[in-house]
Design a protein around this nucleic acid. Structure first.
Lengths: 202, 202, 202, 202
DNA sequence: AATGAATGAGGTTTCATTCAT
DNA sequence: TATGAATGAAACCTCATTCAT
């Protein structure tokens, strides 16, 4: 009667993560049911609970993994001018959006109000903080227009996310003219310049 | 035994709309139950269905009313330079955000994936179209930087919405420096200038 | 599709209480499922939750009602000798056992470990306390053998409950010789005598 | 990858029995899950089913072992007066209660309604029968008050079990005054006397 | 004999909706 | 129009049991 599939447990977990990610980002969290998730992963419903404490824990684990992936970009980009560093982050994120749109949708386009736990909320703020640090250093170097660094971070993020959303939705290819238009608009908004010649070296 | 409240039917409907709006924008649609909505409106559960076909119809009616309200701003602003018109729209929307934050949250910050009907999706596109028209006219007048008008509309909207969200969340007062910073950034991004002197008039 | 039964809500509640009482005392709490309870009450499963917060609350409400009923006996019996008062309690409880065996089974023969809430545990101790008070007054009057009153209460209760169980199980009629045998054994165990003549009156 | 513990199979079985006994008597049968039992026994979930057909079989085997142990006392006590024999049984059972409270709890204080199989129910009746035989012989010798022997057996058992419960729960030490009080009350209830002088021997 | 991932029936509970009053 | 008890499908989750390893 019972047909037990033997599989590498990591494999099962991965299938569940993928199924949940896809459903959460298309239907939303509440509209994605555990039977659906299990069916899409090709496992029994109970199997979900051998790998995750609850549906909400499943969401949070996926969410944190996604944010952690996005955090790599600003964390890796430590050298170069502010402009170059922001460009590097945007480029890597566009790659993610093209390769795995669901990740982008989960982090930036899914309403997770009241579903994220403390750890998830914390890592989420790290994202804006990482951007704020890049811009703050750019300000110190005179590359950025006057204004609060965290606000500039939000401005840049809002416009970058606009692009990511279209790429993730396959509405814009990653190389569309609109992508360049928005990217330049973001830099223009902050008036991020190349580092000016260092006066002291003269 | 049953205690029937005699009330102006419009009043009852309004109370339901307000209750639903508040709940949808704080808890989200799925997490807001019809018993809760009725309780907050001070009516019986069944009363909802005297005024709305279903919970989803209720949402759509509220949504359309909200978008219609926001549409007033671009539709009213028919004269003046592009810069002036955008400024007028932003100002009116900031007023809305300060006065009735839930409206802003519903339209711009609530995930309504799969819940909106055709009519709602249609009126939503009217919003960006109205903005696009303003910018297109600005482009014709040479006030806006090169680039697709609908993309500029999205850029301006993304930054304006960023501000509205903070105002609606009571995180920024409508007159905060950050509001000015973002507003100017948006205009700078599009490089929206005052109308240049009309050569033909010389 | 849906067929809504209109009934007096109190009636529905009573039917649920009766169904749950019967099932809890025959199958046990855990083995009685909510579908079974609803079916036996002739209502839909969801109806349970309009009347009780949860299955466990349902149990506790029934439990307290049962104990409250049993408490009436010792509370009513305020006058007379200790022997008479205990006899009165036993008689009333035997009536309950004959009339509504499930009540007796729930209070004395169902394992409710970990299922009773604080209020229920509290009212349960009132039962032994009420008995202890009767015996303590008997001791003061010299009607009861030496020994801790609360222990005598437990002894009397153990033997009375033995009888109640058989009556409730319909194994003994309320008037069986065994009932008399155990009742007298209980009184003998405590050596509950009629009140001796009050020396002071001589 | 799988780590197989090599152990004496009897040892594994014993660990499972102990774990189940402990859990069944603290949480109850239904509230004790097989994963919990396995965890407490330090074995894998599946291992339970190498030693027992099912959870219910496990319960029944434990139950019968427990009753068998308790049966030793009345079966061993074949000589002496009725009073002495009952005293011997009680003493041995008090030892069990002090040494292994779970056994006492399982047999006398756990609701096993609907869980015991025919064999278990049968051995359980042997317990009262053994007591009944002791009392019947006492009656024949004129040591016990008039009344049905099986009822006296139940009376004596009810009071003895009262004591065992308190000892098992560590609420009374085995030598508490209350223990003596209840023991004597039981004997008094039956009016178990020392054997009267045998008239025929005069 | 032992493992433990997988199963799936079935548990409790929620909630949008209905309809007799 | 309003009520609110009733409905029942369906949600999330548990857990005794199986079986490939």
């Amino acid at each position: 009667m019972t047909h037990i599939q033997k599989r590498n447990p990591q494999q099962t977990r991965d299938r569940l993560v993928r199924a949940a990610l896809d459903l959460f980002t298309t239907r939303g969290y509440h509209a994605s049911t555990t039977p659906e998730i299990a069916a899409r992963a090709g496992v029994a419903e109970g199997t979900i609970y051998r790998h995750f404490e609850s549906k909400q824990h499943l969401l949070n684990e996926i969410y944190r993994a996604a944010v952690r992936l996005l955090l790599k970009a600003p964390q890796a980009s430590v050298s170069g001018s502010c402009r170059e560093r922001l460009a590097a982050v945007a480029e890597q994120w566009r790659d993610v959006a093209a390769r795995d749109p669901a990740l982008i949708k989960l982090v930036f386009f899914t309403d997770l109000e009241g579903l994220l736990d403390a750890k998830s909320r914390e890592i989420k703020t790290e994202l804006t903080q990482a951007l704020t640090r890049i811009i703050a250093s750019g300000k110190a170097a005179g590359e950025v227009r006057a204004g609060a660094a965290d606000v500039w971070a939000e401005v840049w993020l809002a416009l970058t996310v606009l692009t990511l959303g279209r790429i993730a939705a396959r509405e814009w290819p990653a190389t569309a003219p609109a992508v360049v238009q928005v990217r330049d608009a973001a830099l223009e908004a902050l008036r991020v310049r190349e580092a000016p010649p260092d006066v002291r070296t003269l």
